[in-house]
């Protein structure tokens, strides 16, 4: 049994520490698991792990493209690579290597892109990646995961150890409130119905799941019943859950910490336009680059707020035929 435990408070454990402890768990479970980083171990708090498991942890230095090629070679000899960098460097900078040396070559890898979207905060525009989901979704057979909380991150890191092809996690490194209880089970392609509703469906991923829960609260005060769904994996998408919810509510709003071009919203709209057309409004980054700020400021700048979701939800309801 699982329950939704979201309060918006600081999490029990930060994503970075969950990453370390989960990798350690994996090293014990399977000695062929290997973690490679392009010198962001300090940021991801994995330096201790490096000292403790020199055969399972590799630091390539600041060379992300080579890191992906090396991971492909490690896989060929039977190892199971998990690689990490900040999301722009784990996706945009190495896309050709991921696409060809891993995807097309039929290798298996897990890529963790941290500081996804606005969570790059003070590092600003060069580090603020709003396009990783769009790029990664074009790789045949890819699994794209927008991490909503630590329980989900841990569960899917373990579960994808032997998954063929490219598995891409995008995640915050810290400050991601808990959404799911520790005993929650997650599966690839299986979304979570967070709350039932009848007037509108809010489909939100990653840092926007909590915000969507808050938006549903705002809508409830206005007498609007909103259903909230976390797709867990953006690709593959839980088609059944999304189509059945659209049939029930007749209006959808998506919310993501990513460009509205090629992200969760685009995937949902693409699905529904063919299967069950209903109005789909999108909350996400609207054709803009990143900038410096803290999370609160950036959420306001880009409209990643509960108020904006609620507003778009009402607009979607108004567009119902």
């Amino acid at each position: 049994m699982s329950e939704i435990i979201y309060t918006g408070a600081a999490p029990k454990a930060e994503i970075s520490s969950v990453f370390s402890s989960t990798l350690e768990e994996l090293f014990h479970q399977d000695s062929s698991v290997v973690y490679i980083d392009a010198d962001l171990m300090g940021s991801m708090k994995t330096k201790e792990l490096w000292k403790k498991y020199p055969d399972n942890v590799i630091n390539t230095g600041i060379q992300e493209a080579n890191m992906i090629g090396v991971a492909a070679g490690l896989y060929l000899t039977g190892m199971k690579p998990y690689v990490h960098s900040f999301s722009p460097f784990a996706s945009r900078r190495v896309f050709d290597q991921v696409f060809l040396s891993i995807g097309y070559a039929g290798k298996s890898i897990r890529i963790i892109g941290s500081d996804a979207g606005i969570m790059a905060t003070y590092n600003g525009g060069t580090h603020m990646c709003f396009e990783d989901i769009a790029m990664m979704c074009t790789i045949p057979g890819v699994c794209v995961i927008d991490v909503s909380d630590a329980a989900m991150f841990r569960s899917l890191l373990i579960q994808t150890k032997d998954r063929p092809g490219v598995t891409y996690f995008r995640t915050a490194r810290r400050g991601l409130p808990d959404v799911y209880s520790d005993d929650t089970e997650f599966r690839i392609g299986e979304g979570k119905l967070i709350s039932d509703g009848s007037d509108v469906t809010i489909i939100a991923s990653g840092i926007m799941v909590g915000t969507a829960i808050e938006a549903a609260g705002i809508l409830k005060e206005k007498g609007v019943s909103a259903e909230v769904i976390d797709p867990i994996t953006i690709k593959p998408l839980d088609r059944e859950l999304i189509i059945s919810s659209a049939k029930k509510t007749g209006a959808v709003v998506t919310a993501e910490n990513h460009s509205i071009h090629g992200g969760l919203g685009a995937e949902v709209a693409s699905l529904l336009s063919g299967e069950y057309p209903v109005p789909v409004m999108m909350v996400g980054i609207e054709d803009r680059f990143g900038q410096v700020g803290n999370e609160k400021y950036l959420r306001e700048q880009y409209g990643l707020t509960a108020d904006n979701i609620a507003e778009k939800a009402l607009a979607a309801i108004n567009k119902k035929r």
Binding site: I58, A65, N66, I68, G69, V70, A71, A72, G73, L74, Y75, L76, T77, G78, M79, D96, Q97, L100, S101
Partner: peptide, 14 residues
């Protein structure tokens, strides 16, 4: 530019 990193990965694993 892909083959060399790949080869280095194999050699490292070996």
């Amino acid at each position: 530019g892909h083959g060399m990193p790949f080869a280095v990965g194999i050699a490292n694993a070996n």
